[in-house]
Design a protein around this nucleic acid. Structure first.
Lengths: 106, 106
DNA sequence: TTCGATGTTCGTGAAACATCGAACAAGCTA
DNA sequence: TAGCTTGTTCGATGTTTCACGAACATCGAA
């Protein structure tokens, strides 16, 4: 989890949107995520986030679950997440990313 | 000065080094800056920082002076600069960038 | 005006990135 | 076993980024 890696990961609106979505700390199923890109592209973005250390991915059977590593993030870069989240909200960055109508499939 | 722009600008070690150097708020002449790249490349990085809104450049005769836009940065992204600076120090990011032996030519 | 110093811009090339569709692998389920 | 769902991986493609040297522009000094 390096500084430049994290910065690079956050330099794309889709990834910022994913971070915003996960910012509440809840784990999300892959199927819930909605972004205006092909699924292979979404897979790519999630991999970038994971490689940068921003998220953690858990596989369960054929499904994947993503979670923001808030604690680690806060320990390594105190204040960063908050700064990013408020700026993203102000500028409306990443709002193209959302959740499926069907809430958590339980 | 957009979130993703700033993040992208900070995703390169040389640029982080420049920001660290300018973090004390003092204006620096280009001639003082030392980085392990060609001058055209340094010019490029300084342009990226300027375009992202992180710095301000002033031209005086044949010389250029750079300055970090700390106030604007703090207003737009409170806490971000601090987070970046401490992380950069911890990881020793951008330490390749330094000042010339000759201090401010004046 | 000629020279030297200082940056910018240009042309180029290598690498990285974003994106897509198609092919693939792995589990469930019928 | 066959089929469906889910997500990853694999080219392919076009764009952006980083880097360099060379050429250019500008200014002050000789």
């Amino acid at each position: 989890m390096s500084l430049t890696g994290v910065m690079g990961a956050l330099s794309d609106p889709i990834r910022v949107g994913l971070v915003r979505l996960l910012a509440d700390g809840r784990e999300r199923g892959w199927g819930e995520l909605r972004a205006p890109v092909a699924k292979s592209t979404l897979s790519h973005h999630l991999r970038v986030l994971r490689d940068a250390g921003l998220t953690r991915t858990r596989q369960e059977g054929t499904r994947c679950y993503v979670e923001l590593r808030r604690a680690d993030l806060h320990e390594r870069f105190p204040g960063l997440l908050q700064a990013v989240l408020s700026a993203a909200e102000d500028e409306d960055v990443g709002s193209q990313v959302g959740l499926a109508d069907t809430p958590p499939p339980q």
